[in-house]
Design a protein around this nucleic acid. Structure first.
Lengths: 132, 132
DNA sequence: CCATCTGTTATATTTGTAGTATAACAGACA
DNA sequence: TGTCTGTTATACTACAAATATAACAGATGG
């Protein structure tokens, strides 16, 4: 799992980390039960502070993507990913809405928008056909 | 145009303002050439500082959604909205990507995701059939 | 002509978040 | 007993968001 940080981004480092781990899980690169690096090793690997990693891990744990065991380490949640809760649906809609509004302003066809979303969906859950 | 601010939101006030104005344009509630309130009057209306409004307006102007005339005021860009530039396409993909990745993690069908996006698209550019 | 409106610019201050730097603690484990 | 794990606490720097004033420049209407 290669972590790529953009120090010039307006996104906080811990958010970039969360996004990349979630995308790693979505793509199948990270599988349930798989170990993640310790806060200290990952911190020194990518050259940031331990607390920055810890913040990303803690938030990912709160949302149910990973488990943190005191002395063992961090793993992708072996019990499976969180489902589609009402709270998630609401958060998702709130995030999508302004982006779709801008697309409409710029006269983007509904079909083109859907095509872009579909294309990203395929791209993220990519060729990795690893059916057992 | 009713502005609704959530002071508890993690989104900055000026971002919420930008989002609502863009959605207003997308829905047809705000039409090209239409006047927007002055920075001072809007600020006192919704109870925030003049500079907060000014920041939102300045950013909207930079992106081409509105025009600001020194002594006259602020109007929705009468020359039409900005188009679909390569920079916009890239920004859009960067914003969509982590959200779609999370949807995949949560086992959301591609069809369901597309349905949600389509539904939001229709909802924003809603019934307002005002064809000339 | 003058008051009043417009956006604009400049400072200063407060508050909260992001990130870093250390340090220490507690449990597991070889 | 070291050494690894996450956890907690504290302190500090840096920056963004938001506010509070104040002043300037151009346009406009009475």
């Amino acid at each position: 799992m290669i972590i790529r940080l953009d120090m010039q981004s307006d996104l906080p480092i811990y958010t970039q980390l969360m996004n990349q781990i979630i995308e790693g899980i979505a793509s199948g690169e990270l599988k349930p039960g798989e170990d993640l690096p310790s806060v200290r090793s990952l911190a020194s690997d990518i050259g940031v502070n331990l607390h920055t990693i810890n913040k990303a891990y803690t938030l990912l744990k709160q949302e149910g993507f990973i488990q943190i065991h005191r002395q063992k380490g961090v793993v992708v949640n072996p019990d499976g990913m969180p489902g589609i809760t009402p709270e998630y649906e609401q958060k998702q809609a709130e995030q999508f809405r302004p982006m779709i509004a801008e697309a409409i302003c710029r006269s983007m066809d509904k079909e083109r928008l859907l095509q872009i979303v579909e294309s990203l969906y395929e791209d993220i859950s990519h060729g990795e056909k690893e059916n057992a």
